[in-house]
Design a protein around this nucleic acid. Structure first.
Length: 426
RNA sequence: GGCCUCAUCGUCUAGCCUGGCCUAGGACGUUAGGUUCUCAGCCUAAAGACUCGGGUUCAAAUCCCGAUGGGGCUACCA
């Protein structure tokens, strides 16, 4: 049975890089019908915070990464580490220095392992210093606790970032000294920040929840993340999670670091919104609007559904729906000054809008088809192109030059609102 | 500095293992055009890469060596 783990340290939120590491572990487990376990590396009591843990777990859940079994907390296992360390001490493989227990690294040995992504990696122990196992304060060091926990948790495959390659020989020495079976290793490339360096809080290490706040869909984010360092082949890019699980293979993971591309994520998110069932995107946008305090419980869902239908293929994030909502449901709308200047301040603007208003006011019905017919006829009468009526009208009723088709917008807005907004410019 | 590691369009990648089908394919982005009331979407097209130098071979993006460049590690951080 394959068992993998994701081992976050609750000293910060889950960012893109760590989420991708978690994802590849999760995909490997699900693809192979194995177990995906969580280990919380909270040995640093000062920097570890409960709220970070909550955010990390919440982020994992949001991205569909459910875990098996209860998470293991390192802070609750100090006795365990101590026992192993004392065992090494007894065997004469470690020594005390003050209160600390230190592992003796034998010289002139070659440690080698077969990485599932990189192939064979070899290091001479002459490059390694003796390793602190237990610090003077009684807490274990990372490399020691990591080995003990991976053994205790019966981890079969350690999938982690490239930055751990140089930790691996140290850990292997520990497995050997303890007489324990060495797991398989797969070191995946790191996600780089735009300037090519390591992802850090200063450079692009945005919290996963920040993407949620910005209106990204978890499906799109997971899909995009899976493509950082891995490709399903056949030039496929947008594919559902179950398909990703089916196709995922750790052997296909690249060796080269990848730079996160926000533009492509946005594009992909837009594709997901466009292709999503209307009911689904309606409810998600609704939840998003509620979360942002834009709407409350008494809100016209049926009408919102019609609006979403008109806009879903042009939206890139759920955040776009905030502006859309305001156009249709708020009385006061924001006007794009440049657009007003361009379309509503011409010498004949007032006249045009006034005639539009009159036509709309007297129209026997107010639906997309009838409005369009009336507009085209009016344009004919005035010897103008329809566009010369359409553009100013759009700006007058929505404040913007962009958006859904004008006649859709007018029908969705309703006659009263349309007339009221036109009046402002007549 | 030492050690480890990586190297295909601006970005994500396919191809590399098992040399020839690669005048290097796809996607994002960019540019141009089409559809249209705008934008978006959709469609079409264009520009755009094998880091460099040796070697092996009839033949190298693919194999080998070196250089260069990037990244990581080098903590009683994780």
């Amino acid at each position: 049975m394959i068992r993998v783990r994701f081992a976050p340290s609750p000293t910060g939120y889950l960012h893109i890089g760590s989420a991708r590491t978690a994802l590849f572990n999760w995909l490997y487990a699900r693809h192979n019908k194995g177990k995906f376990l969580l280990r919380i590396e909270d040995t640093d009591r000062l920097r570890s915070k409960e709220e970070y843990l909550d955010e990390i777990l919440g982020s994992l859940k949001w991205l569909f990464m459910n875990w098996d079994e209860d998470p293991t907390f390192q802070s609750r296992r100090f006795d365990l580490y101590k026992r192993y360390a004392e065992d090494l001490l007894k065997k004469g493989l470690a020594y005390m220095e003050g209160e600390a227990i230190i592992f003796k690294v034998e010289k002139d040995l070659t440690v080698s392992f077969d990485d599932m992504i990189h192939g064979k990696i070899e290091v001479s122990t002459n490059e390694l210093k003796d390793q602190v196992l237990m610090k003077s304060d009684g807490t274990p060091t990372y490399n020691f606790a990591c080995v003990i926990d991976d053994v205790e948790m019966k981890i079969t495959h350690i999938i982690r970032g490239d930055d751990h390659i140089s930790n691996t020989p140290k850990q292997i020495l520990l497995y050997r000294a303890l007489g324990l079976a060495i797991p398989n290793f797969a070191h995946m490339p790191l996600i780089l920040s735009k300037d090519g360096g390591r992802l850090s809080k200063r450079h692009g290490a945005t919290s996963i929840f920040e993407y949620k706040r910005e209106g990204f869909l978890p499906e799109a984010l997971v899909n995009y993340l899976s493509l950082m360092g891995w490709a399903p082949g056949e030039d496929r890019e947008i594919l559902p999670l179950d398909e990703i699980i089916k196709l995922f293979d750790i052997k296909d993971v690249n060796k080269t670091g990848a730079t996160f591309d926000m533009d492509k994520l946005s594009w992909m998110n837009g594709q997901y919104i466009k292709d999503m069932d209307l009911a689904d995107i309606v409810s998600r946008s609704e939840i998003f609007l509620k979360g942002n305090g834009i709407i409350d419980d008494k809100f016209d869902e049926a009408r919102w559904s019609d609006i979403v239908k008109a806009y879903k293929e042009r939206a890139r994030t759920l955040e776009d729906f905030i502006g859309i909502y305001k156009i249709f449901f708020h009385d006061a709308i924001e006007y794009d000054e440049a657009a007003v200047e361009k379309y509503l301040k011409k010498s004949n603007s007032k006249d045009i809008l006034n005639r539009c208003r009159v036509v709309l006011k007297s129209a026997s019905s107010f639906n997309k088809a009838s409005i369009e017919e009336a507009y085209r006829k009016l344009a004919d009468d005035m010897k103008l192109k329809a566009a010369e009526l359409i553009h100013p009208t759009r700006v007058a009723i929505s404040g913007k030059t962009v958006g859904a088709g004008l006649f859709d917008m007018m029908e969705l807005l309703g006659r009263d609102k349309v007339l009221k907004r036109l009046e402002r410019f007549c």
